[in-house]
Design a protein around this nucleic acid. Structure first.
Lengths: 210, 210
DNA sequence: GCGAAGGTGTAATGATCATTACACCATTGT
DNA sequence: ACAATGGTGTAATGATCATTACACCTTCGC
């Protein structure tokens, strides 16, 4: 889907258009954002947009799929620090919170959900590329802890799902409904993490075998 | 907002229009649903829609606010059955699951989220009228249990929030992203409830003092 | 310098509705 | 029966864009 590596001009144009489109989509949503305004911000010409992306829908897809990352990196870093499970979980919670409650991410999620009405595949793909890798990274961490002898109630997969529910789904839903200002404060985040730790039956004293 | 109780004709018209609008909004979303089609299904005339609702936006508001209920009733009923906390929680979980994962409710949530981009107040009001009463009803139940001597880790408010996160936000997010077919099976629901019970430190043997 | 190949700017084109206007029909109370 | 009051049907009106068409520049290899 990204041919013409021989021509740098096109590539630069493409990046500029995606950046402007992302900006406008985040500001106004998909429907309200007009291609004319995107072109105004990106510079260049409407014809180029059509040459590169085909139509507005495909431009959105490109923007979303090139923009939205997952929480994988955050989880790997936290796990690699070699801390005990409990402080590691606190660190992961904070990292996921920062990543998934970023206003731009929230704005993209809103757009994806809005489009899920007419295009369910699009929503599914989006979550498969963002939530799933995050969930899987968590699962991997939990599985390693279990293998290292840390007591945990539940399979790594189930616990990863619960963690995602408490720290991604629920917080995003709150962000969407109450506006971004009311996102949980750090201490409320800790309270949540402790809730998870209690449910998972993780021994507060367990040490990582990293 | 519902004047003219003296005239039944208008009231009947109003109900028919709301029903047709709700149906079409659920099927196609807000943007795609046209007033012309709504009128076709409801019978009557476009002019009446404008007389009764003013414009399409206000029609949507009427539909959403007259359609979306909360999970209060489910919670009250479960609590009133006089069972012990643990089976009561299982019952509440099942009830909330049925209520909030109803395809029509999910469709309305999608619409509300889509509109939250341009109209944050609308989304806030919606959640205040659906999620908040549910949360408050839960909090009341938990508080009564605590007063009755059931051991629980955490304030009733916090536990209610966690419960909502696990049984409403997260499941709705999954329904939106994966489609409605993949909503959790009953046994997965039980697993979730047990997770919550463990986190809240509720004694499995605790009896309700009802 | 030169001539493509590829951009650029601008102006149609066309479709889709929300919204409004208007002339006509039905019901209801007297 | 007889106006009203209120509803109905249909046809403008207007606005908003996505999408397309086209004539004109630029840049780059040669």
């Amino acid at each position: 889907m990204t041919p013409l590596p021989d021509d740098l001009r096109l590539d630069r144009r493409r990046k500029a258009i995606i950046a402007a489109a992302r900006e406008l989509f985040v500001e106004q949503g998909y429907e309200r954002a007009t291609l004319a305004e995107i072109v105004t911000r990106a510079g260049g010409s409407l014809a180029t947009v059509y040459k590169l992306f085909g139509n507005k829908d495909q431009l959105l897809e490109a923007v979303v799929f090139e923009s939205a990352g997952s929480g994988e990196a955050v989880i790997r870093e936290a796990a690699a620090a070699g801390l005990a499970p409990v402080p590691t979980l606190h660190r992961i919670a904070k990292g996921l919170h920062e990543h998934f409650l970023d206003p731009e991410v929230i704005a993209l999620v809103r757009i994806v959900i809005a489009r899920s009405i007419s295009d369910p595949q699009f929503a599914r793909q989006f979550f498969e590329r963002t939530a799933n890798p995050t969930r899987d990274a968590l699962e991997t961490v939990f599985a390693r802890w279990q293998a290292d002898g840390v007591a945990m109630d539940g399979t790594p997969g189930f616990l990863a799902e619960m963690f995602m529910g408490l720290f991604v789904s629920d917080l995003q839903t709150q962000a969407i409904s109450h506006g971004l200002g009311i996102s949980p404060l750090p201490d409320r985040l800790q309270e949540r993490t402790n809730f998870f730790i209690a449910a998972a039956g993780i021994n507060q004293l367990a040490e990582s075998a990293a």
